[in-house]
Design a protein around this nucleic acid. Structure first.
Lengths: 110, 110
DNA sequence: CTATCGTACTACGCGTGTCGTAGTAAATAT
DNA sequence: ATATTTACTACGACACGCGTAGTACGATAG
């Protein structure tokens, strides 16, 4: 079966994460499982990709973090919450996606 | 208007080029114009991106080059022709695209 | 007759996102 | 007692795209 290449998902991991955060705050491990189940195992995000996306997006102001005092599985969780700026970015990414899809599909034989 | 980010087109430039070469051999300048017009100016490939894609794909055996003796515009043209391996790669990329599209669209609000 | 535009590239090096590998740490299942 | 699951962090490598610059010549415009 075809695999999803990191080159095409590149730059859309942020969008995927932001979409899931629209439902409310979440954390790495949970998000990774949601992505996995949501796509019927078709896309399994790499841990390093996920956590580096958190760092980047927090730096960019798209998400905010807060920590839970409760330890789960030995390590304290870091939760992330989407910001207004993140919501706007997500919307822009959706528009970009629709345009990009239109462009690429001109070169894809079905 | 939304712009196409290099992060999403990344890895699909090769596919776009191979698609156009299915019609027969072509060269850089012509392909760049065809991409431009084909997408109604929505996607204008950068020259460096295009020529580095040629180098990469020739190395990978997806395309073959030959030169025309006729000088055009002062510089001799390098034509590229798709190989059988390139055709197979293109097909695989199309399948990958369909899968990726399905995955990403689960996270896009329309 | 000089200058700019169009054609057709090549060279160099940077930035970014993804990924492989490895390590830390504790709770829970076997 | 050991393996697995949870929940991360650190480090470095790699590939692709892109900015910038340069080469070279014909054709067209002023």
């Amino acid at each position: 079966m075809a695999e999803i290449s990191s080159d095409i998902i590149r730059g859309y991991n942020d969008t995927i994460i932001l979409y899931l955060l629209l439902d409310g705050p979440s954390y790495g491990y949970e998000l990774s499982k949601r992505i996995r189940t949501n796509t019927d195992e078709k896309y399994i995000i790499k841990e390093t990709t996920l956590y580096s996306a958190f760092t980047r997006m927090e730096k960019n102001g798209y998400i905010e973090s807060f920590t839970d005092e409760v330890l789960s599985g030995g390590k304290k969780r870091t939760y992330y919450r989407i910001t207004d700026s993140g919501r706007a970015y997500y919307q822009a990414k959706c528009e970009e996606w629709n345009l990009t899809k239109e462009v690429i599909e001109k070169f894809i034989v079905k």
